[in-house]
């Protein structure tokens, strides 16, 4: 049943004009970056800003809006002889698949075509696309959580924006303040540790470490690489990202299962 629901949701979402625009936007941007910049690392770094800002924001707003526009229908679905579990996961997959497809077409395809011709920075390129997909999934989970936690559409949107703002800017702002205040101490390890807690920082640093920009980051990069160099570090990074997907999803699921609609 989950699969059936997911297929129908995905069919509906895939016809959304906004998703089309999102795909088109990334396609145009990625292609033009590859056309205008001769340097693949310049392309990746320019894309990185988009991936870190646009992907989470769009995922968040898109999912929140979709779920609220379809709230009454979701309720109707729940009055049919299907379990809540199926409805939840049906919507989770039904939203995730189109969003991921949009990224794959808008960004993955141009990157893949470019990789066919130029192998330079292939790992970083792949990481860029995978990172964007992970962030999509993370913000999808957060959006579903927030959507069912707030009955009011505006409240849900506002809290979604707040979460986005916090992870995108505020967290790094606080990190900067910590670094400035603790400048008397060797704080690199601590800063690297803090960066593991924010998925945006983690994805960004994982990508930068694959690029020659890492040389500019001196001791900080060394600490990061040293940590990632061993199995524990890699596991921690992967776990951190998976937790960022799993935790909001789990919270949303728990809430959905016992919620009064």
């Amino acid at each position: 049943m989950t699969g059936k629901i997911a297929r129908w949701v995905a069919r509906d979402v895939l016809r959304s004009i906004w998703l089309g625009l999102y795909t088109f936007f990334f396609l145009i941007i990625t292609l033009s970056f590859f056309t205008f910049f001769d340097d693949p690392s310049r392309v990746l770094l320019s894309l990185l800003n988009l991936v870190l800002m646009v992907v989470p924001l769009v995922s968040m707003i898109f999912v929140l809006t979709y779920l609220h526009n379809n709230r009454n229908f979701i309720v109707l679905t729940l009055t049919q002889p299907v379990s809540r579990r199926s409805v939840f996961w049906g919507y989770w997959w039904g939203l995730a698949i189109p969003l991921q497809l949009a990224l794959l077409v808008g960004m993955g395809l141009p990157v893949a075509f470019h990789l066919l011709a130029h192998r330079a920075l292939w790992l970083a390129s792949v990481l860029q696309v995978v990172g964007a997909m992970l962030l999509t999934q993370i913000f999808l989970g957060l959006a579903i959580w927030l959507s069912f936690a707030h009955e009011d559409r505006l409240k849900a949107l506002a809290s979604g924006l707040l979460v986005w703002l916090s992870l995108t800017f505020l967290y790094d702002g606080l990190l900067l303040v910590v670094i400035l205040l603790a400048s008397a101490y060797p704080i690199e390890k601590f800063a690297v540790g803090l960066s593991f807690l924010n998925p945006l920082d983690l994805v960004r640093l994982l990508l930068l470490m694959q690029m020659d920009v890492a040389a500019l980051m001196g001791f900080t990069a060394e600490v990061f690489k040293k940590f990632l160099g061993n199995a524990v570090g890699t596991l921690a990074a992967v776990t951190a990202l998976l937790i960022w997907i799993a935790f909001p999803t789990w919270m949303a699921f728990r809430n959905f299962m016992k919620k009064d609609f």
Binding site: N49, D172, L176, I179, S183, E188, A191, G218
Partner: peptide, 20 residues
Amino acid sequence: QLVEQYPPAVILLHSPLEFL
């Protein structure tokens, strides 16, 4: 300048905050 005075701040390189 921040990075010059507080080298660990380079951890924010290419972050949305740097962009901002």
